Every structure is written in C-alpha cells, then in structure tokens.
Simulated assay, not measured.
Amino acid sequence: MEKIIAIVGPTAVGKSALGLKLSQKFNGEIISGDSMQIYRHLDIGTAKDSPDELRMVKHHLVDICDVNQRYTVKDFQEKAVQIIHDLDDQKKVPFVVGGTGFYLNSLVRNLNLGGESSGDDDLRQELLTLEQDNKLDVLQNILKETDLEAFNSIDISNSRRVIRAIEVYKTTGKSIVDQSNGSKWADFYIIGLTDDRAKLYDRINLRVDKMVDMGLIEEAKTVFDNRESIPQAKNGIGYKELFPYFEGISDLNSCLDEIKKNSRHFAKRQLTYFRNQMDVDWYNISEVNDYQQVISQKIEQFLGGKNDNLG
C-alpha cells in the first residue's frame, strides 16, 4: 500500500518550510494541497514557495491554471491520486502540503464526489449566478435546507465549497461529508502543525506585512483589473479585501487590517476542520522541543524502510 505524508495546519504556521525540509531528507516531492496556489501569477497572496524553493524540490499542482479557469476539489483529487501513483513507481515519497481541508480530506478518505457537475445545467447556472452576484447567504441557506450535515461541517464562507456540496447531494443523495468509497486506498501519516494562538496571530500579521513589502497590492490590482478572473480567484483572502481600496471607497490601512482579520479567522476555521474531520498527529511548534527532528523520526518509523534515502 502506498505511503503518503500530509502536512496540515493553519496559515502561516510553517507547513511549506517543513515540507521542503522533509521532502529533501526522504527523497520526496511535494503535492500542493492549496486551492489558490494552482493559479499562475498569484504568487504573493497565496504564499507560494519562492522560485528557488520550487526548484529545490519538485512541486506538483502549483501554477497549473489561469485565473479564468475553474478548478474543483474533484480535479484536485484525481490529479493528486495519479501523481501519487507515479511517485510510488519512482520510489519517491509524496508529501501533500497545504491548508485546504476539504481537498486533503477528499484525498485521504477517497471521497466519491460524483460527476463533474450535478447533471442539472439549470441548477448549476442558478448557483453560479448567485455566486457571481455575491449572494453567499442565499447559497448557504440552500445548503442548510439541502444538507444540514454539510452545512455544519464544511467551510460555508467559501462559495465554491457550498456549491459543490449542494451538487454532490443532488447527484448522489448523500452528504459530501459522507462520501467515502469504503476501502482504504493508501496509508497516510498526517502531520499537523499548530502554535499558541497569540503567537500564531502574530505570525499571520507579520506575514501580511511582508506580503505588502513583496508587492501584494500590485498583484491584487491585476486580479481586480482582470475581468476574466473567476470568483474562486477573486475571492481569495489577500485579494478581495483590497478591492474597496482600488474602488476608492476604503483606505489602504483598513483593507490591510481586514486581510489580517480574515486570515486569523481562516486559521481558526482550518484548525477546527482538521481537528474534527481528520486523524492528525499534532505538534505545537512552540511547545515541542526540536519538533522537526521528532517528526522526522516518526516518518522514518512510518515508512518502515520503504525508502532508501532516509537521511
């Protein structure tokens, strides 16, 4: 059975840095589990690894879409499974790194996500129109009435997740959170990084400040100006909050404060999701001495000699 390492946790906690270090040590390659890093040219706001870091270790599912292309959790699941099979053939260890909880869960639990769409074009168009009109509250109410289990489990602030949950229920008659195919297809060791709340929030605030220095405002302006950008790209944290500044209805500092606030709220939702939905081995980076070494030893035990390059 294929063995896969996943690294999860809230934004800004250090998942990417750990993934780079471990994938080098264990002859691995990285599969991005982030729903925004798929987009070309959205580099700063999505916290992609730098060009040098991308060259250090081969990355998959990064920079594979333009901002006008739709990308679903089903797309991620199918592509990630194929990459994992290919890496196993090459005797390499897959490291799935990212903070998009439902993406990771779809892979770990082998969720049956139905077809590409609901099969009901009228329904799909209705849902997409509501999304384009920023009627998230209406979509949430539809989901609540259709699938209360999903409403209480998924990130309902993400319109694409809400739409997908509605479609899956309409297609299969089952909740999107209860779509396991039943058989265990691979062996996962899921590493969770966390930190004390105050320290994590400080890390998030500092990251936003660094992003601004790196050119976040200019990057967000290209998203704002691109009429072909789909809502999935435009609604990313770090971009949508700056739109009022570009429209001249809010000052820059207020918009940056909004990015920090939304990022903190997102981190809280990520932690809640991973703790409730997945079997994670958690490490508080401020409390576990030399946590990277501890994790490395756990991985060696998990791989059980499968890999010949165990540092």
Rank of each mutant, 00 (worst) to 15 (best):
K3P: 10
I4W: 05
A6K: 14
I7A: 06
A12G: 11
V13I: 10
G14Y: 05
S16I: 11
A17W: 11
L18P: 00
L18S: 00
G19I: 00
K21W: 03
L22Y: 03
S23L: 01
N27T: 03
G28R: 00
I30G: 00
G33L: 03
G33K: 06
D34W: 01
D34G: 02
Q37P: 02
Y39S: 07
R40M: 06
R40I: 10
G45K: 10
D49F: 12
S50P: 14
E53Q: 15
L54T: 13
L54E: 14
H59P: 13
L61C: 11
Q69E: 14
R70K: 15
Y71W: 09
T72M: 08
D75T: 04
D75Q: 01
A80D: 04
V81C: 11
I84K: 05
I84L: 05
D88L: 02
D89P: 06
Q90D: 13
K92E: 04
P94C: 01
F95E: 02
G99F: 01
N105P: 09
L107V: 01
L107Q: 01
G115P: 02
S117D: 04
D120L: 06
D122T: 15
L127W: 04
T129M: 13
D133K: 01
N134V: 00
L136K: 07
D137N: 09
L139N: 00
N141H: 14
L143S: 03
E145M: 14
L148Y: 12
N152H: 00
S153I: 09
R160N: 07
R160H: 09
K170C: 09
T171C: 12
I176A: 01
A186C: 11
I191R: 03
L193W: 02
Y201W: 11
I204F: 08
R207M: 13
D209M: 10
K210G: 15
M211T: 05
E219G: 13
A220G: 04
A220Q: 08
V223T: 12
F224W: 12
F224K: 07
N226K: 12
N226V: 13
E228R: 13
I230F: 03
K234R: 06
K234S: 04
I237Q: 11
G238R: 09
E241R: 04
E247I: 12
G248S: 07
G248F: 05
S250F: 14
D251L: 01
C255V: 03
I259D: 08
K261G: 11
S263C: 10
R264C: 10
A267P: 05
K268C: 10
R269M: 15
L271D: 07
T272W: 13
Q277R: 14
Q277E: 15
V280R: 13
N284I: 03
N284S: 06
I285F: 10
E287N: 14
N289C: 14
D290L: 11
Y291V: 06
V294T: 06
I295T: 00
I295Y: 03
S296V: 00
Q301M: 08
G305L: 02
K306R: 05
N307G: 05
L310A: 13
L310W: 10
